[in-house]
Design a protein around this nucleic acid. Sequence first.
DNA 1: GCTATGATTCGATAAGAATCGAACTATAAC
DNA 2: GTTATAGTTCGATTCTTATCGAATCATAGC
Lengths: 102, 102
Amino acid sequence: MSAITDDQLARAFAALGNPNRLKIFRSVLAHQRRDIGPEEDAGCLIYDVINKLDIGAPTVSHHVKVLEKAGLIRVTRNGKFLSCLLNEEMRTKLTLFFNSAL
Amino acid sequence: MSAITDDQLARAFAALGNPNRLKIFRSVLAHQRRDIGPEEDAGCLIYDVINKLDIGAPTVSHHVKVLEKAGLIRVTRNGKFLSCLLNEEMRTKLTLFFNSAL
DNA sequence: GCTATGATTCGATAAGAATCGAACTATAAC
DNA sequence: GTTATAGTTCGATTCTTATCGAATCATAGC
């Protein structure tokens, strides 16, 4: 696993620093924990996020891109729908940042 | 250890999302790891931070307050000098956020 | 008390970010 | 191909943030 730069770290934290983006990220986290096999639904649906949060679709779309560019999530398309998966490598890096020498 | 709210989480991440604040926080982290006994110097000196970063004293002062209000560090005064210590409880909470169910 | 130095407060400015509505693109279903 | 729905792009607006310089406060040493 390659080392994370200060720039990447700051970008990831900035992404999580917005309350609505944090909620989106937590939805992805929570969904990730529910998923079991490859036949389960793959990830957290943007559609659900848009209907759950009190912000419009354009804003959600923007936030999802920010989280993706920060390397926190991966986005895939399933027909009309988008779903988000956690980027496990980044999660590990962030855990290590707080938890060890890095 | 009390649970962390979404608001507190977002505030902590937003604090770490600024590149200069991240550098300050990493200085505190690094210093924390060096410290051994109670007779060691207690924490990371703001004075050193101001001379190391390419931003003015007022800005550093502002950033330190943001980190403190976010619960990431604690600031103490030693005569003319301020020093920063890591808030270990917050560090634990942030580790858990990425690493477990929370 | 005076001076030097570390740090804060207070505007001001400039840059960036969050959000929206309207128009648009993409996919599915028929 | 038409229609309905999921999501994006674009501009505009509004709010927040980072930073600075100047003035001020706080402490130490003399």
